[in-house]
Structures are given as structure tokens and as C-alpha cells.
Amino acid sequence: MNRFKSIKRLLKDFRIIICGLFILLLALTAIFAPIIAPHSFSQMNTLDRFSGPGPEFLLGTDEFGRDILSRLIHGARLTLIISLGAVAISSVIGTLAGLIAGYSGGWTENILMRLMDALFSFPPFLLAIFVIVFLGPSVINLILTIGLLYIPRFARIAHSSTLLVKELEYVEAAQALGASIPRIIGRHILPNIFAPIMVQMSLTLGAAVLLESGLSFLGLGPPPPTPSWGRMVQQSARFMQMSPYGIIWPSVIISLTVLSFNIFADAVRDNLDPRLRQ
């Protein structure tokens, strides 16, 4: 009953509707990319270079005469796979680490959380560049690297929430009844710290999209011909004076995607946090 109510409350917020729809649309585009894309993403065409938006190429073509729309659609696939993969890794490992640290306390907590602090102290972009240069750019490596970088975000939130929740009566009651530790953590603590973690997931998705685009922009993204938004911006930047479309569309899509994830996260937090609710 309670769960149903909170979903209903979320759906009343227009920010969640708009951003949610955009994200849903992006996800569907990514899944059905080969069906939706009007052209091949790699087909080059000498005669159609730098064309502006028109009936044949809806958003225009780039310096190799490739259809920008088709490249954006296939790029969505890549960006979402990398971001979702990274967030899956960081949220699972991070939350688990935070829960264990928060619940057990003592040395375990100390070691786990100082490890997270160490990881957190690196500027994420620099660390990502370092790791990618070392491992070589590939989709798997990007997922692992970005995933690793965002583990502390989840660990910290799970840790602090666990510290609060584990003092509550129902946890004590479970302990008194002799419930096993995994059961206490899984059945009693995790569901009650899930809201802030969900908010963090949405925020981190936005950050991951930005980081992936940034790395691709620097030439550390997946190798061609796989289209990636960041690489599209980088390649087209040299031709800005000849045709601005190659740089405008991917930049707009990157901004919209990051913005959607961030606003979505904000709205979810506003609605689920009792203190922020009027």
C-alpha cells in the first residue's frame, strides 16, 4: 500500500514524467537502434559531406558524409551500455561494501571506508585516463574503469544510511530474534536505505555518460567505426566552420541526457525524502 502511494506521488511530479520519458525514449532507441536508424552508421559518401538537415539526412551529415542521426542512435546504444554497466558494477559493489562496513563496524569498517576515501581522493577523470591508457580502450575496459571509479559514491551513502538504520528498534528486534546477519542486512536494512541509493544511481548514470563522452572526446573511447557521442564532437570540432551540425547535435544529446538523469535524481529525492516533502 505504502509503495503504491509513493509511486503515485512520483508520477505527479512533471519533472519525473518529462525526464523519465526522455530516458525511456533513449533506452528504446538504444535497444532498437538497427531498426530505427534510417541509414548505416558507417556508410561514407563523398558527395554528401557536410550536408545540413534535410529530408534525406534528418540531422545532416558529418565530414565523411555519414548520417549524423544514425550515428547518434547507435551512439546511444554504446553510451547507455557503458553507463549502465558501470553503474551496475559500482552500485552493487559500493552498496555491499557500505552495508558491511556500516553494520560490522570496527576494523572492517575502518579498512573498507579508508579504501573508499583513497579511491575518492583521485580526480575521476585523471584516474580514468590513466587506467584506459594502461588497459587500452574497449567497451569492457571502459565499463570496468568507470564502474570502479564510482564505487565510493555508493559505499559512502550505504555506509552512512546503514549506521542510522541499524540502531532502529526493528533491527534490534531482528537481532534479538536471532536472525542471521545476511538476513538482517538483506531483509531489514537494505530496503530501508534503498531510496538514497536509487537517487545516487540516477546521478551516477549522468556522471558516467559525461565521463564516457569526455574519454571518447580525448580519443580514449571505443575504437572506430563504433560511433560514440564524445568522439563525434571531437571529430567535428575541426570542421566547425564548414558545418556546425556535426558538433551541435551530439553536444545537445549529451547535455540533455546528463541533465535528464540529474533532474530525475533530484525529483526522486525530493519526493522520497520525508524531510523535503511538504
Partner: peptide, 13 residues
């Protein structure tokens, strides 16, 4: 890399 990208596309096509 620009040249290589065109050649890659030609070979793959």
C-alpha cells in the same frame, strides 16, 4: 586516423 577510418570502412564494406 582520418585516412585509416575511410580505409577501414572500405575494407569492411
Amino acid at each position: 586516423s582520418d585516412t585509416a577510418e575511410v580505409v577501414q570502412e572500405q575494407l569492411q564494406a
